[in-house]
Design a protein around this nucleic acid. Structure first.
Lengths: 212, 212
DNA sequence: CCCTATTTTGACAGCTACTCTCATTTCATG
DNA sequence: CATGAAATGAGAGTAGCTGTCAAAATAGGG
């Protein structure tokens, strides 16, 4: 039964000594996501209703909403966000934190590209095309921004809630969001990690004559 | 009849030789907005339904949607955006464009503060409190970002669609959005134009040891 | 002033995301 | 296996939003 599961959403989540209940929950969660991705690729985002998703995932619509607060959230997992902060904290303290950010983001990009390239592209595509998804992504970016602010505040000895830190982190995160959109608009032809480097250069140095 | 109009939303819109039709449209538009602001102050955003708005504005719900595509749009007029680009283009060409941006944004802040301080605050408040409004605001910011990009591209001789310009403008716009949120979260105690200056400094110079 | 063409409006039906409640089923544990 | 807890499904309800169509208001000309 498990062997016929098509196209896993997530890399083989560690399945150690979890109770049957937990394992089922994970299964349901990925079933809903997989159904959603498949339907969206077939029909597009707007044409895909929660009812269809529920049908294909073989659960009730109620259950879909129990697992994901909104339709947009189904395609925007965000389980990485928390990890990113951890990685930031795990970086050597003497490293310039701009470089820490660069390393972490590069790693995130690499992982996305290696482990689930189609989904990474689909997400970028949805983000560029569907306003609601883009909006939801921005929201989660805002959350990410606050976590990034923690890390930066810690490194720079500032208050997390200072205007300066908040403005700076928000601008960084928003700038990075723009990469994804750019990437999708240009049909994924560019190398995402190169775009990331260029974006980070702009964020660090502004629009200098040097960068193209 | 015009003299009993309560609390105009917008500064006395020029009422020259517009036909009766046009004048009524403007009236309806402001009636809807005024009703919305009033109801939101009484009950909060979520508790305010389109039906209530329609009732108070003495129009049908259909009409409300004919004037504003979404509920969020009723509180986010955005008529200023187009003006901003014009002002940018009207600036002396030899002025450093970062200063142009600063001057324009300062002017926008000043106008908002002088002409409709309550509404400016209400908007900032809603932006901070209501995710849907914040999201919609971000969307319109994204549009603003593209217009800003035009201006900057023109000044710097770059392509409007270059990654660098897009990342930069988006980060600026998002950074500026953050000051509104900061302002609202701190109960509007700060001077908005001072916050703006600080934010623009951060955006220009990054998190240097100089700025507090 | 009236007649006609056009625009604006209201009433209504319909769809879908999302919430809440409650009974039923499924798993955990002793 | 029995008991308690958690997950699910079914159903009703709300609200934002879309689309259609007929009625009302306005513009413009005779």
């Amino acid at each position: 039964m498990a062997s016929m599961t098509p196209a896993r959403t997530s890399p083989p989540t560690d399945v150690p000594q979890l109770g049957l209940r937990e394992r089922k929950k994970i299964k349901t969660r990925t079933a809903i996501r997989d159904a959603t991705y498949a339907l969206i690729e077939e029909q597009g985002y707007d044409a895909t209703t929660i009812e269809q998703i529920a049908d294909r995932a073989e659960v009730s619509p109620s259950t879909v909403f129990r697992y994901f607060p909104t339709k947009e959230d189904i395609v925007l997992t965000d389980e990485e966000d928390a990890l990113i902060l951890e990685e930031l904290k795990a970086r050597p303290k003497d490293e310039p934190w701009t470089e820490s950010v660069r390393a972490i983001m590069q790693k995130a990009v690499r992982l996305g590209h290696e482990q689930q390239p189609e989904i990474t592209r689909l997400r970028a595509h949805l983000m560029a095309q569907v306003p609601a998804v883009r909006a939801r992504m921005m929201e989660s970016m805002s959350v990410a921004s606050h976590m990034l602010a923690e890390g930066i505040a810690e490194r720079t000895g500032r208050d997390v809630d200072s205007l300066e830190v908040r403005v700076y982190t928000m601008s960084v995160v928003a700038g990075l969001a723009e990469i994804s959109q750019y990437w999708a608009e240009n049909d994924f032809q560019d190398d995402l990690s190169e775009l990331l480097d260029r974006a980070l250069d702009v964020l660090a140095n502004g629009l200098t004559p040097e960068n193209t």
